[in-house]
Structures are given as C-alpha cells and as structure tokens.
Amino acid sequence: MTDAKQQTPFDVLQYLRQELMPHFLCPGCGHGIALRALLWAVHELGIEKDNLAIVSGIGCAGRTGAYIDANTFHTTHGRPLAFATGLKLARPDLEVIVITGDGDCLAIGGNHLIHAARRNLDITCLMLNNEVYGMTGGQVSPTTSEDRYTTTTPLGNTEAVFDACKLAEGAGATFVGREVTVQTPTLKNLILGGIAHDGFAFIEVISDCTEIYGRKNDLGSSAEMILSQKSAMRPETFENNIIDRPFRPNALPTGVLAHDKTRPEYGAAYRASIKAQQTKK
C-alpha cells in the first residue's frame, strides 16, 4: 500500500480489459456496480494488478472476472474457492479474490464455502447475490425470496432462504459483511476491509437481476429495484419508508457483521508449523 497510489484518483478503466468491451451484463444488472466497488477497493489498497489474482466460478458473477486486468482464473461451477485455496497456498504472495454468485457459492459450492470459512486461509470471497440463476435463464437459487417466481418455481418459491452471512460466520469466517450496490462507497469500504483482513473474508453484495428476476416478479426498473434494496436494508435512510414492492420481503442486516482478528490465518499457521518442526530437529 503506497500513499502515492492513494492520492491517484480512482479510474475504473485502468483496471479493466477495455478490449473486451462491450461487456455481457444486461442493462441494469447490479454486478457492474459491485465490480466497480471491488476495483475501487483494490485501487485504494494499492494492490498491483500483476499481483492480483481473481478466481471466479460459473454464472453471471463468475463471468465478470474476465473484465479485470489482472491474473484471472475462470474456473468451474461452484469451485472457485477450491481453486483459490490451491493458488493461495502455492502463492501466498498473490492477493487472491474470489468472485462468485449465490448459486455458485451456496448451492453447488456450499461445501467449499463452509470449509474455506473454517480453514481461514487469506482469501476474500465476494458473493454477488441476485437471488437467481441468471445465466441459465432464471431458475430458483438458495437465496430466492419466498413466493418469488422463477422459471423453476412457476407457483412461487416455497423453499427457505439461505442467510449466507450467518452461514459463513457459523462456519468460522473471521470477516463477514453485507452491503447493497447503491451504497457504492460503503460497499467499497466493506470490500477494502475484507481484503485487508488477514484471514477468510466473506462479503455478500446484494445485487439485482432486473432483466430476468425483476421482470418476472414485477419488481420495477433497475433504479426502482436498487432503491427498494436500500429502503429494505437501510430503512433508517428513508424518511417515508413505504415500500409496496420490497426487493426482499425480509430485510437483512448490512455492514460488517463479524470480525475476529484472533484466529490465525491458515497459510501462515501451516508454514509456521513446518518451520517449528524443522527447528526441533
């Protein structure tokens, strides 16, 4: 981290592979805002692009990694945390950040999430939660709100919703936070805190899928969706807090939800145990 870097104004284009534009995200998708917040945090932390490793899974969230001008690894569905674990253990010098979605991280990849949280390796996991499998056409996900319509819940969703942050914290994640995209500077600060944290950081970004999920559930335009996110999650910021179509029927807490600095980081602890063994001999 250098002061000079911090003084440079953040220009998102410096961190993007502009030759790949236009990007594939739908108009109104919240993932682009999340990506901007991530790169802003990277910029403020002064992380060199050469030392940044982005590991992503499959889905709309997973595809965003390719636009970042860094070492990018687009892996398999649900398994970016497994790849990232190998990469970080092999290369502790790299800043390893995982970008995943709610289906990728909580359904097919749920096992890897809880064990990455338990292990406490220094990886930042950014889960972009848009409540739906967007890339495959809008099927129900573990975070789809109750009664919502998707292409596989034509009668409305009857399954319970995963609280990803509680799950991560329960599994032992030492940094846990949640933020909405419309609060971009706050989101940036949360991500910055997660990356700076020496251990496993889990950050849930409340994103929105306007094109598929919003349309199917009559949640309004993108602007309406992200404003309703904000009003649901941060009712104190709205004076006249009347939401007839809340993005999420049940508001979830935002901000830093857990931060434990006492647990040792896994990679450092493993290397220390080897060193201790060698000196014993």
């Binding site: 497994a82 190998g86 970080k88």
Partner: peptide, 24 residues
Amino acid sequence: GGVFIQMEDEIASMGAVLGASMGG
C-alpha cells in the same frame, strides 16, 4: 517446503491441485 492439504471432498482436491499448478 511443500504444501499438503486434505480438502473437504474429491472435487475440491482436484480444484486445489489445478489452482496450485496455475500458481506454478
């Protein structure tokens, strides 16, 4: 000076192997 890790499942094991190899 190498790294051994017992992963949470078989799939993760192969993922971690590929990740480590990508790292060099």
